[in-house]
Design a protein around this nucleic acid. Structure first.
Lengths: 122, 122
DNA sequence: ACTAGTGTACTATATACATATAACACTAGT
DNA sequence: ACTAGTGTTATATGTATATAGTACACTAGT
């Protein structure tokens, strides 16, 4: 795992875990690695993982049983709304960013299509 | 100007100035506000503006004449490549982000089109 | 009861960022 | 020469982030 040093590591790990949930790599209700295990796995300080899980719990994504472990929420709805929220953010960033650079709506569609064609070829 | 506290202010101001150049609000070769004026305008510390201009100069976007002021590059090519770079970044973030959430290429086009229709109506 | 594996909490240190404040150096216009 | 307006440099302070290290509290299995 390589981190972008312009964004706090705990934020990046939060996104990583959210994506793992969305993609089904982490199942609903499943126990995740302990803070210490995750810290070792991601080569990060245990305290950073504590922060990650505190924030995720605050958002209702995970819950913890003291002395037992940390678990993914059981709520399918929560995961769905999380996915939708993350997608909305990405779409918004794209459109707003392109508008701010002076691109028109038609440019956006063209650029995306053009880029996707390239990707498919690869 | 409202700043997003998850990103360093000097980075946000750099983007702001780059956008102003791209949109022609700041002309090639033009003298920009002094660090002190910009600081007052954006309600930011003068040292933060010093950092902004140091970084922009390092990127070849601006140049300074000591005791005189700070100026936008004369190079049209520089501005063009900067715009292209910023657009590429935005497009890349969009595609990578959506792929990581499990969306297909066709989903992306649909979502963008759908969102753009909404925007136009507004 | 004991123990291993959890989460929790705390202190200390280092770095980046942003601010506040002040002083210095250069340039252009008077 | 002087002065106002530049950029430049420096010290100090506060906050957020990340790390290192330690200790405590709870739970489940033995």
């Amino acid at each position: 795992m390589i981190f972008d040093n312009t964004v706090p590591i705990y934020i990046q790990i939060m996104k990583l875990i959210k994506k793992d949930i969305i993609l089904g790599k982490l199942e609903l209700g499943a126990k995740v690695l302990s803070t210490r295990e995750y810290a070792q796995e991601l080569k990060v300080n245990p305290n950073t993982m504590v922060r990650v899980f505190n924030e995720l719990e605050r958002e209702g994504i995970t819950f913890t049983k003291r002395g037992v472990g940390t678990f993914i929420t059981e709520s399918k709805e929560k995961v769905e709304s999380m996915k939708k929220e993350m997608a909305e953010d990405i779409i918004r960033n794209f459109i707003d960013g392109m508008l701010e650079l002076g691109f028109e709506f038609s440019d956006m569609i063209d650029l995306i299509k053009h880029r996707l064609e390239k990707e498919v070829v690869q």
